[in-house]
Design a protein around this nucleic acid. Structure first.
Lengths: 210, 210
DNA sequence: GGCCCCGTCAGCCGATCGGTTGATGCGGAG
DNA sequence: CTCCGCATCAACCGATCGGCTGACGGGGCC
């Protein structure tokens, strides 16, 4: 018979971890070998325990976030550790970042538990599983590539969401006001808004900022 | 011996519900008698099953939100149904709204599972339990009452976060631009910002808008 | 080498915003 | 009845924003 799949849980909510632990306890071929409540802990435990799959939440209260933890785990040494993202959000930004960071799969917590079990078994063999809504978004993005904000534009957007004026943004980033305005114009285009307030609103909703 | 506590789960994430179900299954004196994936479903099942406690998440993807569901359940008929909020967020706005809506307790998912069990048993008897961080916030708010936005100010803030200019906000709410500016000034004061972008940022972070 | 994206900068101008002062009416609390 | 919070409106003014046009250099790609 096939050996059990060894799992490391990473979620900052103790109740959720306990729930997953109890849930996965019902599957004989799935063994939870560790729990992490932060990204740092997950990276350390992944290196130490070398589980088959890390079940990773993206938003982890403090410290490094799930994307960064995923990146470190996925790119570490042997690379035999597969990261399966299990999270609430299905925004383009999150999905894109997680995949770029090397996630093996991306599941939503809204998924049925059976799908989770199946995805875990698939991930253990390096096979990818995406929740239907996630897959849809990925396909949609392939078909009509939506404009992505550049690094610099995200910098401006970050300052903008602090409520700073153009002059202060310019000073904070060591550029001229004219440049700030140029970037803002492009940001408005890409986010399909025409005011700073609208840009901040979209940025927060799409979780474009950390 | 004391009879079992009858529980109704309400969370829009199937995996989380299954996790809680498995977790609570380990407690002999706690019986999960129903599951709801939406606020509407929770209200209907609460009326039909009359559980001792409803475990309610606040953010429910679509339909009515957890606060509204809590209000309807708490104010329905006999009122013997206690709502225990179990959620991720500990912002003042969420806590305040939930308590006003009639929640019996407010727990964070970051809490230890044992605390959850204890809180459920307490809630079954109508006793209140608050997570430590939540209790702290409540106390802090009592000591230094932070300014609360009025209904009207929230209206303006809502329009503002759509990126509308003062003129458009005025038209949308059937008031004059002068009034919009007056409200905005007070909103800036209360949120401790001085630009519209900053106000939107704070509003999103504090979850002041639905 | 040419092309295009990115980041940088400039100047202009009308529209809008933010701050201020002051005023009215209405409703509830004391 | 009076006080106060809330919502409403007015007029003013300097500062800022948004949109525009145009420009330059660097880096990657073919």
């Amino acid at each position: 018979m096939t050996p059990s799949v060894r799992i490391l849980l990473c979620d900052d909510h103790a109740v959720v971890r306990a729930g997953l632990l109890a849930l996965l306890g019902g599957e004989p071929d799935i063994d939870v070998v560790g729990e992490a409540g932060s990204g740092e802990e997950a990276v350390a435990l992944a290196a130490q325990l070398t589980p088959d799959v890390v079940l990773m939440d993206l938003q982890l209260g403090s410290g490094i976030d799930g994307v960064e933890a995923t990146r470190r785990i996925a790119t570490a040494g042997a690379g035999a550790v597969n990261v399966l993202v299990l999270t609430t959000y299905d925004t383009d930004a999150d999905i894109t970042r997680a995949i770029e960071a090397g996630a093996t799969g991306y599941l939503l917590k809204a998924e049925r538990p059976e799908e989770l079990f199946a995805a875990i078994r698939a991930a253990a063999q390096g096979r990818t599983t995406l929740s239907p809504p996630v897959a849809s978004r990925v396909m949609a993005r392939m078909r009509s590539p939506r404009p992505t904000l550049t690094e610099r534009e995200l910098d401006i957007l970050g300052q903008l969401s602090q409520g700073l004026g153009n002059r202060d943004i310019a000073r904070a980033l060591f550029i001229s006001e004219a440049t700030v305005k140029t970037h803002l114009g492009r940001i408005y285009e890409k986010l399909d808004v025409d005011t700073r307030a609208g840009a901040v609103s979209v940025a927060k909703e799409q979780r474009l900022l950390p």
